[in-house]
Design a protein around this nucleic acid. Structure first.
Lengths: 145, 145
DNA sequence: ATTGATATTGAAAACCATTTTCAATACATA
DNA sequence: TATGTATTGAAAATGGTTTTCAATATCAAT
């Protein structure tokens, strides 16, 4: 876990006139130490164990907050619910998603990113954000089909 | 409208042991003649005018059917609902989406697609499908900000 | 420290796009 | 033309997410 993630949240909150709370800090810590691509419910279940008092709604609210604060990325794959992942300051990555077993593999590719910028430029478009997902079969699922 | 879209649907239905119905044909025709990236509700409203008897659920059901039949692509952008677009046999394209005015610009880029295949290959992954969306500001919205 | 204003919380209810249910109807095969 | 069943429309249900609301906690000012 990044040393100052909790601080980073505090700063964001202070800057917005919002308040630091123990729940927010606790949720953030569990979020960071948990695996990637968690849904709100998955995080809720993990948070419940060490902090049984925390409610469902607070987890939802905190995840949105973390996204606003730049500490999390919000992603909607095709499985019906929103997943969040902890966002290190500068890494951007995309996803390979197995349609059979649900495995999610991350990748980065600068050349693709560069070509995206070309496309945007040609269309007088200013990119703030992007999303690239390749759906298909992972190595394992190709064998065991 | 492609000459034989209705036929194409009929063939799919027959092949699956399903039935052709006037509603399905009517919805398909409105779907094709309407603009792209329609939500179920938007299509429902357009279908209502010439065919007031058709119900909401039937539009939903037919859109899923068209997707299964290969006549439509189902896409979830970040605005909360599923959008469909008529799928010509072989074109694949991706999207630039304006976060301010909601405009959707389509583009194709073979070099990006080729690089995607490279990434997949390196990860022993077999791509069935992909999705690339660039979110940002369109030319107009950059000016009028 | 104490107070006061108000942001936040947990639980339950509300939301809302989408799906399902169900009785009535329409399609396709014999 | 009759028969079995897929399909329909309307309404209810579903399910992830958001909102409501009274109780509580935070923080700035005292």
């Amino acid at each position: 876990m990044r040393k100052n993630a909790v601080e980073q949240l505090s700063e964001y909150l202070a800057g917005q006139g919002l308040r630091s709370t123990t729940q927010r800090d606790q949720i953030l810590q569990v979020f960071i130490s948990a695996g990637r691509h968690l849904s709100a419910e998955e995080l809720y279940l993990r948070v419940k164990k060490p902090h049984p008092g925390i409610g469902y709604a607070t987890v939802y609210r905190t995840l949105k907050l973390l996204a606003e604060a730049g500490l999390a990325d919000e992603r909607r794959f095709e499985d019906g619910f929103t997943r969040y992942e902890y966002k290190a300051s500068d890494d951007h990555h995309d996803h390979l998603i197995c349609t059979k077993c649900g495995a999610i593999i991350e990748f980065e590719n600068e050349r693709i990113e560069a070509l995206q910028q070309d496309v945007a430029r040609k269309n007088h478009f200013l990119v703030q954000n992007h999303k690239l997902e390749l759906y298909g079969l992972c190595g394992n699922c190709q064998k065991n089909r």
